[in-house]
Simulated assay, not measured.
Amino acid sequence: MITAADPWQGHDDTVLFTTLLTATPALIALLAYLGSRFTARARLHRTAAGVTRDVCLTAVAAGLAVYLWGLLDLLFLGDQEQAQECERQRPEGAVLVGRRGDFVPLRLVCEVSDGRDYSVVVPGYVNPTLTVLLVLALLGAGASAFLHHQQRTPTQKKG
């Protein structure tokens, strides 16, 4: 039995599978919606607010895909392979004392006796890419809300 005090914890399999099983259909639904935005009917009714909303949702879909890719890297490596990867990348002379898995940011951290740690398994581009896509999604959401508000608010003429 693994306890919270166990220094050799990886990612909780229940959380990992639950995330994969909920994020995958969400990604498929987002891609289906975004694909529908390219129909002739949808193009006739495009607005600036709608385009920025779609850019925002594209960033969300891309971020979800990158996160899922990182989760799949963790899923396909069992405890033994993760331990081997920690050992393979261990600094010279350091002694491994633990391993932990974090979901945000997504990483598998190997801890050594001198207090340092290092990440393995999850590709190094996953978290920086997620950060950029999150910023893009937030900017897109803000711009879309602003443009939608501008579209709904009647302009008053000075006179």
Rank of each mutant, 00 (worst) to 15 (best):
G124K: 08
Y118R: 03
L133P: 07
T131K: 07
K158A: 14
N127D: 12
P128G: 05
P128I: 07
L134R: 06
V112G: 06
F146T: 13
V122T: 11
A141H: 09
D117F: 10
G124A: 14
Y125E: 11
T129G: 10
T155G: 11
L106D: 01
Q151R: 15
D114R: 04
V126C: 06
H148Q: 15
L139D: 04
V126M: 05
H148R: 15
L108A: 12
L138T: 10
V122Q: 05
Q150N: 11
V109F: 00
F103R: 06
L106H: 02
Y118L: 02
L136Y: 00
R116E: 12
T129C: 12
V120W: 03
P154A: 03
C110G: 04
P128T: 09
C110N: 02
F103G: 06
A145T: 12
A141G: 15
L138D: 03
A141F: 13
E111S: 13
P105S: 02
E111N: 03
V104R: 10
V104Q: 12
T131M: 14
D114Y: 01
T131G: 14
L147Q: 09
L134V: 07
K158T: 12
P123E: 04
L133A: 08
A143Q: 08
D102V: 07
V109E: 15
L134W: 07
D117E: 13
K157N: 11
R107H: 06
G140A: 11
Q150G: 05
D114A: 04
V104A: 15
A145G: 11
Y118F: 15
L139K: 04
P154S: 04
V120P: 01
L106C: 01
S144R: 03
Y118P: 05
L108G: 00
V104M: 13
T129W: 05
G115R: 01
L136F: 09
Q151D: 12
L106K: 01
G124Y: 04
A141Q: 11
Y118A: 02
T129A: 15
V104K: 09
H149A: 15
G140T: 10
D117S: 15
E111P: 00
G124R: 10
L134K: 00
Q156P: 01
K158L: 14
K158I: 12
T129Q: 09
S119M: 09
Q150E: 12
A143V: 14
L133T: 08
T155W: 10
R116L: 02
V109L: 15
G142T: 03
R152M: 12
Y125S: 11
L138V: 15
G140W: 10
V126L: 08
T131V: 13
H148C: 07
A143C: 12
Q150F: 02
S113Y: 00
A137V: 01
L138Y: 03
V121D: 07
L147F: 04
L130Q: 13
P128L: 08
P128K: 07
S144Q: 03
N127E: 09
F146I: 14
Y118E: 07
A145I: 11
P123T: 08
